[in-house]
Each structure stands twice: as structure tokens, then as C-alpha cells.
């Protein structure tokens, strides 16, 4: 094995190395969420803006752009999940015998349930892709934009979220994502060694604000649709 490859393998198999992979892939996913939210908020502008944006994404770099983005996201997602599952398992094994009584002094609920919020996000992402990307529901897949000959993304979102159980699952998943981010975003700085006494307060606030914006931004859409504030026509 070349020395470079063996260093990469050693890095991946070390605890800190794997954590760094989690943090770097976390940055990509966190960046994606911000972009995705900005795009989604176009439903408040209307059908034309939303569908223009969807069309723009599909034709970026003559259609290659979306596939490049998907490949990068999928790679990061898979690395993030594989690394965190392995880390969680070795962390559980490191405390073979549980305490009879264990009292927390600093940790938060969000920090303790990272693997569960993460796995909920995974389940949600699979559902979400089948729902709006693969469109297994023919009714949603066949919607056409009434003005231009193209798929009606706006209509699909509105019809999709008029389904109350779907919207409720969406809101629950996004709430766990908010929890994941409130610990995760601040963790990026610590894992990459960018956190210190001077910056810890600011990092915590930044992490909370980011998580809150993502949460409120995304859940506002199904809520507005269920309340009839955003409608099909």
C-alpha cells in the first residue's frame, strides 16, 4: 500500500479522523440545507417562481449540475452515516458496564440523542425522495404547470402537504433535524479545533440560530399549506 493510502486508512480508522469526516460531511449537509431552504421559500412567491427555480436546477450545466450535486450529497450522506454508526458502536462498547446511577453535569438532550435524531432524518430523507424526487405517487408526478409545459413542482408541494399525516411526519422529522443541528453545528467547530474560550459562546448562539432558522423555515411551508395560506390555485 502506498504511504498516502495507508495514512488515509489510518485516519479513517482512528477516532479523531472519523470525527473529522463527520464534521466535514456535516458542513456540506449543513450548507445544502441552507440552499434547499432558500429555494423552498419560493413557494411563498408563487407557482411561477417555484417552477422556474425547479427548471433552473434541472438544466444547470445542461442537466449535469443536478447529478453532480446529487453525487456529492449522497457521498457525504453515506460517509456521515457510516462514520457515525461506527463511532456510536465503539462508544457504546467503551462503557461495557453501565452505572447504576449516572448524573449528567453538562450534556444536553440533543447531544445524547444524536444517533436517534440522525436515523430519523435518514428515514425521513428516504421518504422525502420517494415523495418529491422519485414521485411514486402518480397523482403528484403527473401534475403539469398550467402556463408553461413542464412539471408543476409548486402544485406537487401544495397537494403533497395537504395530506395531514405526511405534513405531521415532516414536522416531526424537521424538529429532530433542528435538535441534530443545534448540537451538530457547534460540534463542527470543536471537532475541527476551531473552538476556544473566546469563541465558545458565539458558536453556541450561531448553532442555535442556524438550527432555529432551518426548523422554522422548513416547517412553515406545510403549516401554511394546511392552514390554507398557500393554496393550489
Amino acid at each position: 500500500m502506498s504511504p498516502l493510502v495507508s495514512t488515509i486508512c489510518q485516519f479513517w480508522s482512528s477516532s479523531i479522523g472519523k470525527k473529522v469526516v463527520v464534521a466535514l460531511t456535516g458542513i456540506v449537509l449543513v450548507g445544502f440545507l441552507a440552499g434547499h431552504l432558500a429555494g423552498n421559500l419560493l413557494v411563498y412567491v408563487g407557482r411561477e417562481a417555484t417552477n422556474d427555480y425547479a427548471e433552473f436546477l434541472m438544466h444547470l450545466l445542461h442537466g449535469a449540475g443536478i447529478w453532480i450535486a446529487r453525487a456529492v450529497l449522497l457521498t457525504c450522506f453515506v460517509l456521515h452515516i457510516v462514520a457515525t454508526i461506527q463511532l456510536t458502536r465503539s462508544n457504546r462498547a467503551a462503557r461495557a458496564d453501565a452505572y447504576e446511577v449516572k448524573t449528567s453535569v453538562r450534556t444536553t438532550l440533543s447531544a445524547r440523542v444524536m444517533i436517534w435524531s440522525g436515523l430519523t432524518i435518514l428515514a425521513f430523507v428516504i421518504f422525502h425522495l420517494l415523495h418529491f424526487t422519485v414521485r411514486i405517487d402518480q397523482g403528484l408526478a403527473d401534475l403539469r404547470d398550467p402556463l408553461v409545459d413542464r412539471h408543476d413542482t409548486y402544485g406537487m408541494v401544495v397537494r403533497g402537504f395537504q395530506n395531514v399525516p405526511v405534513s405531521l411526519f415532516y414536522i416531526v422529522a424537521l424538529t429532530l433535524l433542528c435538535s441534530h443541528l443545534s448540537h451538530g453545528v457547534a460540534s463542527i467547530f470543536q471537532t475541527l479545533g476551531l473552538r476556544s474560550k473566546k469563541t465558545r459562546g458565539a458558536i453556541k448562539v450561531f448553532s442555535w440560530i442556524y438550527a432555529a432558522i432551518i426548523w422554522l423555515g422548513f416547517i412553515s411551508i406545510p403549516i401554511s399549506i394546511m392552514l390554507g395560506l398557500v393554496h393550489f390555485d
Partner: peptide
């Protein structure tokens, strides 16, 4: 066979010398 840090900061809270988790970063 130790675990690895997932930034709970429990260690900081119990360290008898009150060492900060900045050393972990």
C-alpha cells in the same frame, strides 16, 4: 478501547482541576 469525544463536555464539568475542553479542540 476508549471511546471518542462527541462533545458532551461532561469531562470539563467533573475535572478536579477544571481543565477546559479547549485542549480537546
Amino acid at each position: 478501547g476508549f471511546g471518542n469525544c462527541t462533545n458532551h463536555y461532561e469531562c470539563e464539568g467533573v475535572c478536579p482541576k477544571e481543565i477546559s475542553a479547549d485542549v480537546i479542540a
